[in-house]
């Protein structure tokens, strides 16, 4: 049970966040909606990486590797934005 409990808790949290996403999409429009839904999505991804992908049990090297991957995504999105925002 000790192993399963956090998994179930995270699952519940993910469902709650999903509810929030749906709610926000009904209430907000435009930029605020975008910011909120991206924020919620990041929180979900972080939960999955931390608990389901076991980063909380891993050492420094593995965490740096995972952060590196997130950083790579930032490069992609950042430079994309550089083009789109200055056209």
């Amino acid at each position: 049970m000790k192993v399963v409990a956090p998994l179930i808790a995270v699952w519940a949290a993910l469902l709650a966040l999903l509810g929030l996403t749906v709610g926000a999409s009904l209430m907000l429009t435009g930029t605020p909606s975008l910011v909120v839904s991206l924020g919620i999505a990041s929180a979900k991804a972080a939960l999955i990486a931390w608990v389901y992908m076991q980063l909380r049990r891993e050492g420094g090297l593995m965490r740096i590797m995972a952060l590196g991957a997130a950083f790579w995504l930032l490069i992609l999105l950042g430079y994309l934005a550089l083009d789109y925002l200055t056209r």
């Binding site: 790579w72 490069i75 430079y79 550089l82 083009d83 789109y84 200055t86 056209r87």
Partner: peptide, 22 residues
């Protein structure tokens, strides 16, 4: 190598600023 891809789009309508950086 991950920071230069925009040099394939200099004449494709990419913004001038992005092109200068790439």
């Amino acid at each position: 190598g991950f920071l230069v891809w925009g040099h394939h789009m200099f004449v494709a309508g990419q913004s001038m600023y992005a092109s200068a950086v790439f």
